[in-house]
Design a protein around this nucleic acid. Structure first.
Lengths: 146, 146
DNA sequence: TGTTGTTAGTTACATTTTCAACTAATACGC
DNA sequence: GCGTATTAGTTGAAAATGTAACTAACAACA
């Protein structure tokens, strides 16, 4: 029995994932926070609305795997900033369809453009092939792919 | 100008990283929380002490990239649980060397064994080659490698 | 229709995190 | 040595998160 069953933190995938996630989101987070006073969940809600069109809070919860209270608060915050608005659905009055306002669209446009650039810069650090493989593996772990 | 400048959330590396990190740490977090009432930072402090031997709070901050207040509180919590103890250093009385108690060592041993197993199970889902490449890329993004 | 169960979303409260200010000890420049 | 600047670590208050209980609307079925 050798002493070398030492297990290093940098070998532990959850640790690595977390460190990488923190490091990678730092720069972008700073931007939407300083520029628009937004929190991460708010940015995500906006992003999802842009991606899938009008949808309900529940839809976003499911899609983004975020708890409903977090979404509820993000929605209120975005509403106060006048980036989104809601309308109760006739078919089921429990549901509220969320949609981007004009200014919300502008903000989202800006954020998306920056997100894209930010993403590219991260990928450049890894190289095309590595980056592709990384994203594939992450999607699997995140349960987005089998 | 085609409409297909749509940028999907699942293409955005920080998003993917975060989702994967959340998903990957869930199972293990549950274990140390339920079994030992520990928070993530506490588990990390323990892990670092096991890995590098006795060290100060500051050392851990630097190594693990965690803010000193978070560490300070984790250290207090671990101390209360009698998993670690501290002794002020003679050479510089601002510094406190942290070390594992007997029971802390037991707990850490258990956690490390489980972490290892947990890690293996994650890696199996990806396949050996993919997993290796994933860890390499994460280390780069985390700034642990150039 | 009335009862029971379920679902979308909000609210209240407890826990955790963040941020800024603080204390105590050391280091530096003179 | 003495004043000033740093540094390690703690603390308190504010912000954010998680958890559970709640309201309002719908569904199902007698």
């Amino acid at each position: 029995m050798t002493k070398d069953d030492t297990f290093y933190s940098t070998e532990f995938l959850p640790y690595l994932l977390n460190q990488a996630a923190e490091a990678a989101s730092l720069g972008f987070r700073q931007y939407y926070k300083e520029r628009y006073g937004m929190l991460r969940t708010e940015w995500r809600v906006l992003f999802h609305l842009g991606q899938f069109g009008d949808m309900t809070a529940k839809d976003i919860c499911t899609r983004a795997n975020i708890h409903k209270t977090k979404i509820s608060r993000a929605v209120s915050a975005l509403e106060q900033k006048r980036f989104i608005a809601r309308r109760t659905m006739d078919t089921d009055r429990r549901l509220e369809e969320l949609f981007l306002t004009k200014s919300g669209k502008h903000v989202l446009e800006d954020l998306q453009r920056r997100a894209k650039a930010f993403d590219r810069s991260l990928m450049e650090r890894l190289g095309e092939e590595n980056a592709r493989s990384l994203k594939r593996n992450l999607a699997i772990l995140a349960g987005l792919k089998s």
